[in-house]
C-alpha cells in the first residue's frame, strides 16, 4: 500500500512537469478479481488498510458499515459485492480507498473495499472507449469508459454514479407512516 502511495506521489510530480500534453487526467487503478479498475485521482482522499467496521442494520449487503475517520462517520462499500463478484476473505493487501463523491445533495466521503491498489496512469480523453452496450441487463452507467494500458484493459469508473446511488434515501418508515396516515 505504501509503495502504491509513493508511486502516487511520484506520478503527481511527473504530471506537473509534463502538464503541456493537453487534457490528460490521472487515474488511480486497483485490482479486483484480476481486473483493473480506475478512478479519477482527484476524487481520492486517502488509502487505508482494511479495519473492522460497525455494520448498519437493514442495509444492502455491499454496504459493510461505517468507520470513524478522524471523527467523521464514513460508510464503507464492498465493491466486489456491489458488482456481484465472488466474496473473498479480507487479507493484508485489502485496502479501503476513501473517495470524495459528488452527489445531488453535496459532497460525501465514502470508502470502497478493493483487493489491492495497482498504479497511477495519465490518460487522455481520446484514449477512452465507451463501454459497450450490453443491453438492459447490464448497467453500464457507472462505467466512464474502457482504456488500453500496456495491452491491458482498465475499466474507468464513474464513482459519482456508482456510489451516489447508495446515498439516495430509501423510502423511509416515516414516508410509509405519512402515506398510511393519509389513507
Amino acid at each position: 500500500m505504501n509503495a502504491a502511495q509513493e508511486r502516487l506521489y511520484d506520478n503527481s510530480d511527473m504530471d506537473v512537469s509534463g502538464q503541456e500534453n493537453d487534457q490528460t487526467d490521472q487515474y488511480l487503478t486497483f485490482i479486483m478479481a484480476d481486473e483493473e479498475y480506475g478512478v479519477d485521482i482527484l476524487s481520492v482522499q486517502e488509502i487505508r488498510g482494511w479495519e473492522s467496521v460497525t455494520p448498519i442494520p437493514n442495509t444492502p449487503p455491499h454496504v459493510k458499515g461505517v468507520i470513524n475517520l478522524r471523527g467523521t462517520i464514513v460508510p464503507i462499500v464492498d465493491l466486489r459485492q456491489r458488482f456481484g463478484l465472488e466474496n473473498v476473505e479480507y487479507g493484508p493487501l485489502t485496502v479501503v480507498i476513501v473517495l470524495k463523491v459528488a452527489t445531488r445533495k453535496g459532497a460525501r466521503v465514502m470508502g470502497i473495499v478493493v483487493d489491492a491498489v495497482s498504479d497511477v496512469y495519465s490518460l487522455a480523453e481520446e484514449e477512452m472507449k465507451a463501454a459497450p452496450d450490453l443491453g438492459d441487463h447490464v448497467n453500464t452507467l457507472y462505467i466512464k469508459g474502457l482504456v488500453n494500458v500496456n495491452n491491458k484493459m482498465v475499466i474507468l469508473l464513474d464513482i459519482n454514479e456508482l456510489l451516489g446511488a447508495d446515498t439516495i434515501p430509501d423510502v423511509s418508515i416515516n414516508t410509509i407512516k405519512e402515506i398510511k396516515e393519509a389513507q
Binding site: I56, P57, N58, T59, V66, T72, I73, V74, P75, R108, V109, M110, D166, T167, I168, P169, D170, S172, I173
Partner: peptide
C-alpha cells in the same frame, strides 16, 4: 453527512 438516514 456521508451516508443517509437509516431507519431506527
Amino acid at each position: 453527512t456521508n451516508y443517509k438516514k437509516v431507519d431506527g
